[in-house]
Amino acid sequence: MKNSKIISKALIIFAIPVVFACEGNDDDNPQIENEAELITVLNITLINPVTNDTTFAVFSDPDGPGGISPTVTPITLKYTGENGQYLAHVEVLDSSNPNDVEQINPEILEEADMHQFFYLPNTEAGEVVNISYDPQEIDSNGNPLGISSIWNVLGLTNQGETVTIVLRHSPNKGGAGVATGDITNAGGETDIEVTFQLEIQPE
């Protein structure tokens, strides 16, 4: 009987450190949620619903940051003085593994409250194109997501016009101006930022 009590006490003593060791492992390896996405490709498609003019532009950096320089094609639009509106749609992908190219748009849509695209014309581009969000595409709080946008063409390009497209992860969507596309007070982390040359030509 005495030996049985001694064995029981010994088992309790040795069991205590095991319990604490398991708890320590949990603390050393916290679960990371909502990590920023790796994006190596950004495609933008723009369609004029009146003339059916369609244009594509692509940013591609398959080996990711720091490797071979990415390729970026210009955004080329047509303008005649009327019917100058284009409906744009952005698609982003992770092609770092060519055998398993991942579509990122579904994840962005699923986590719409935590993402927002921004469209930033430089000063010259701002004189020839006005970009706004698609009012039908909003998150659960009624804030824009920006996968879809509306481009109103106001004139022809001359030289030096660019539009930068930025995807922010966990932006402050309530910040001043953020809902209308001003990135100044958005904060958050940048998932991808691409500057496209903008060319607007006569039709």
Rank of each mutant, 00 (worst) to 15 (best):
S170V: 07
C22M: 15
N185F: 05
G146E: 01
D53Q: 13
L42Y: 11
P70C: 07
A21C: 05
N25A: 10
G67D: 12
L109R: 10
Q85K: 14
V72G: 10
Q197K: 11
G66L: 08
N83R: 09
G24A: 06
S4C: 01
Q31L: 13
I13N: 03
G177S: 05
N130Y: 05
P98E: 08
T51K: 08
A21N: 02
I200R: 06
I12H: 01
P74W: 09
D139I: 05
T51S: 12
S69M: 11
E161G: 06
F20Y: 13
D139M: 08
G175T: 07
L38D: 13
Q159M: 01
V50R: 02
A21Q: 06
Q116S: 11
L93T: 05
G126W: 06
Q116Y: 06
V128T: 01
V101D: 04
G155C: 14
L77C: 05
N48A: 07
E91V: 15
A57H: 04
S149F: 07
D26M: 15
E110Q: 11
Y79R: 01
E161T: 00
D28F: 10
P144F: 03
F196C: 06
G142A: 08
T80H: 04
R168G: 01
L109I: 09
N83L: 13
A112Y: 04
Q201C: 03
Q103H: 13
K5I: 12
E189T: 15
E33C: 09
I44T: 14
T76F: 06
A36R: 08
A10H: 07
V18D: 00
N34C: 11
F20H: 02
F196S: 13
E124T: 12
V19T: 10
V19S: 02
V178E: 10
L120P: 00
A10S: 14
P144I: 03
